[in-house]
Amino acid sequence: MKIMNCPLNGPRNISEFVWGGEVKPMPDPAATSDQDWAEWLFLENNEAGIVREWWCHVPTSFWFIAERNTVTDEILKTYPAGDVFKSRVDFAAKAEKQS
């Protein structure tokens, strides 16, 4: 079986992991258009080559980031999300629409 290295638990069978989509910068929810928001939320680029993705180790619910070559199907690198997201991101709440 294919092995993935979980940054918390070490090398494990790939069946213990689920894919969580590409790592993409989140647009400012208060400023972005509905279309851009939907694209960010639902659409994937599906690049051929090296991609950066969210993966979850299911038995521990541990989310981390993996770099993977989608052409050769190799897992190049895995690391905790904290290596990328180092600080809390706050957004101003969007003003409620007046009806």
Binding site: N9, E16, V58, T60
Partner: peptide, 12 residues
Amino acid sequence: IAQTSVAKMSAI
């Protein structure tokens, strides 16, 4: 501790 899959179930 191993938090892993045992008989296809998540187990500790």
